[in-house]
Amino acid sequence: MTCINHRLLRLLAGFCLAALAATTSLAQDAPQRLRSIPLQAGMHVIEAELALTPEQRQIGLMHRRDMPLNHGMLFVFESPQVQCFWMKNTLLPLSIAFIGDDGAVVNITDMKPLDETSHCSQKPVRFVLEMNQGWFAKKGIKAGFKLSGAPWQR
């Protein structure tokens, strides 16, 4: 009797784990939508979703098929470090700006959809802003340009 109970328990545990894995997989295939804040880039207003937790930052803009003009995602880290990003499961071509504690852009690079090449900040930063590819160039935003908004107010 106990042998049968152990087999049954193992079988049920296996089904539960499989169901949990399937649910987790489905949840990860859907784009996340996060709370957003306005940022200022000169006369341009950016509506930036905030990726604050490790899980939010890991998912980022994965699985999105489009993003409105002047919208992006601001990744906020606890401390300045060299930050590196890739485009795993990210369908949109993006431009990424690495931003210092004072709101100044350190460097900007373009990233291709689904490319797993790392794109890194040239120095330690706590903020990273992803926008539709070409957004920064079209607005004349380059290294040294200062963004403003709640993250950089003291």
Rank of each mutant, 00 (worst) to 15 (best):
M73L: 10
P38I: 01
L11M: 11
R65H: 11
A104Y: 00
K112E: 14
G42C: 09
M87R: 05
E78T: 01
V105G: 08
K88I: 03
V105F: 05
A19F: 12
H63I: 05
C16H: 07
C120A: 08
G100M: 06
H6R: 10
L61I: 13
F75H: 05
R33D: 09
E116P: 01
G72P: 02
R126S: 13
T24D: 10
F136Y: 14
W86Y: 10
I59N: 00
C3D: 11
P80R: 06
V82W: 05
L26T: 07
W152H: 01
L114K: 15
L92W: 10
I99C: 05
F145N: 00
D29T: 11
L114M: 15
P54Y: 05
K146S: 09
T109D: 15
A19D: 05
D101M: 04
R7N: 04
V82T: 15
G100K: 11
E78D: 04
W152A: 00
K142W: 03
Q122M: 11
T23F: 11
L94D: 07
A97V: 10
C120L: 05
A41L: 07
S118W: 11
T24R: 08
N89D: 15
G140Q: 08
V106E: 15
S121E: 00
L52M: 13
W135G: 00
L11Q: 06
G100Y: 00
D29F: 08
I59L: 12
L94K: 01
G140L: 13
A21R: 01
S118M: 14
C84W: 01
I59S: 08
I4T: 09
M111P: 10
L52T: 12
V106P: 06
Q133K: 15
M43K: 11
G140D: 10
T90S: 08
T24N: 12
P31V: 13
L12E: 00
T23L: 14
P93S: 07
T109P: 02
H44Y: 08
S25V: 07
G14P: 08
A22Y: 07
Q133P: 01
L39G: 03
E130K: 04
L94V: 05
L34W: 08
F145T: 03
A51F: 13
N5R: 06
F127Y: 15
L147S: 03
G140P: 05
L69H: 03
G134L: 05
R35Q: 08
Q40G: 07
G134K: 04
L9G: 02
K139E: 14
L94G: 03
G144T: 07
I4K: 12
L69D: 08
W135Q: 00
C120T: 08
I37D: 09
